[in-house]
Structures are given as C-alpha cells and as structure tokens.
Design a protein around this nucleic acid. Structure first.
Lengths: 109, 109
DNA sequence: CCAATTGTTTCCTAATTAAGAAACTTGTAT
DNA sequence: ATACAAGTTTCTTAATTAGGAAACAATTGG
C-alpha cells in the first residue's frame, strides 16, 4: 500500500514535470485524453471479453463497425446516447456516482 | 425498509401494467427517457446547489445557455464530451462502475 | 504462406448538435 | 404591479457525428 502510494505520487510528479501543472492548458488536454483513452479501452475490453466483433456490436445498437472502431480509438466525440447504448449492449451497468462536497448522488444507466 | 421494498415492487408492477413489460419497444423507450430524465435533473440539481445560472455554467465550458437548458430538459442528445464537461465544471466526479458478471471495472471521469 | 476475418481509414452524404442571436416566458424581488 | 433576471424556445448557419460503401491493413487460423 505504501509503495503504491509512493508510486502514484511520483507518477503525478512526473506528469507535473513533463506535461505541466494541473490547470495549465497542456495538462488539461492530457487529462482529457487520458480519460477518453480509458473509455475506449474499457469498451474494447468488455467487447472482447464477450467475443463480439465490432460489426456485431454495431449491429446491436444500430451503428456501423467504423463507428465502433472510432469510439474505441477515441477518434470521435460520440453522442452521449451512443455511448450509453454501447454499454447497454455489452450488458455493462454504469453507475454514475456524482460526488459533491458532502452529498453523494447515485444513479444507474 | 420493508415498506420501501413493497413500494418499489408495486411501482414496478404499475409500470409493467401501464407502460408495458421490459423488452417491449414502448417500455424500452420509457426506460431510456427515465434514465435521461435523471441525468438532466441531476445536472440541474448540482448547478442550483452551486448557485450558478445556466449562462454561467455554459460560459465555463464554452456552451450557450440554450444548450444547458436543452441538456437539463433532455431536449437534446448532447455529445459525450459535452456532458463530461458539464460535470467537470460542476466539480462533480463521475465514477463509471462498469459491472460485468464477476469483474468490476472502475474509472473516474 | 495463404485465405478469411476483423479492424481501420477514407470518401461522400444525411442527420443532428451547437453557435449565434433574438424573442418569448417564467420567476423573483422591490 | 413593474422591472429585472433567468430560463425556454425558435431561427439560421456552422461544425461534427453517423450512415453507407468501399479500400486498405492487420490479425488469426488452416
């Protein structure tokens, strides 16, 4: 645990140093890309777990395989509903835990 | 607790009865709208908690107040990135808990 | 190594979000 | 009741997603 925390800290420091501090434009772009990467990766991972091709997944939600490819590789800023459809088709429940200061709002998609 | 469960059950039954069983097209549409309703409501709730106007929130993320209004009232299928920007601007952390059969993937936006 | 499948990329077109702006409605405070 | 602010709706235009189709690249299995 301790080593994990240390590792995390030094990674953050590395990012601060090489990409820039939080709040700078370059860093914000990095954070954003990172997050989107995770989204696409996650979709791909689940899809492959289920042994589905991009074409099959696309058919399930009325989207072409080219779109699935773009979504998985974060080459497009898809519509919110499209992303939800993807997760629904993969039978993956998404819990949006919106954390505020003290409250915790939760709802499922 | 017991009364909660009973209440929930009878609500489900009501929905089954009046909207249709799960899997029917009409019910699916209902479910979808319900989920989107919650999204818009949630955004509005957080925004109002923070004492922001739609125009102010819009300015923060480069979107017109008209768009915020449409998002909150679910009159548009906004882009995924736009929805994320809204939550980020509201300082609300979204945890995507993607639940598969046994695994649990989690990542934050 | 070849063949077949899967995934990526590109082209053009259709559909839809969002900008920009303005009118209109609702709500609030004085 | 009136004035002001906030929210909603509408219009036109610009930008971008997605469809449709096809070419190309990469991967997998025989």
């Amino acid at each position: 645990m301790k080593s994990d925390r240390l590792r995390k800290k030094s990674l953050d420091e590395m990012i601060d140093k090489h990409i820039g501090e939080i709040g700078t434009e370059k860093r914000d772009n990095f954070e954003e890309e990172l997050r989107l990467d995770i989204l696409g990766q996650t979709i791909r991972r689940i899809r492959e777990d289920k042994h589905l091709t991009q074409a099959q997944l696309g058919e399930m939600i009325g989207v072409k395989k080219a779109q699935i490819s773009k979504i998985e590789n974060n080459l497009t800023d898809a519509r919110f509903e499209t992303i939800l459809k993807v997760f629904r088709a993969l039978n993956a429940k998404i819990n949006f835990n919106v954390e505020l200061m003290n409250q915790k709002i939760q709802f499922e998609q």
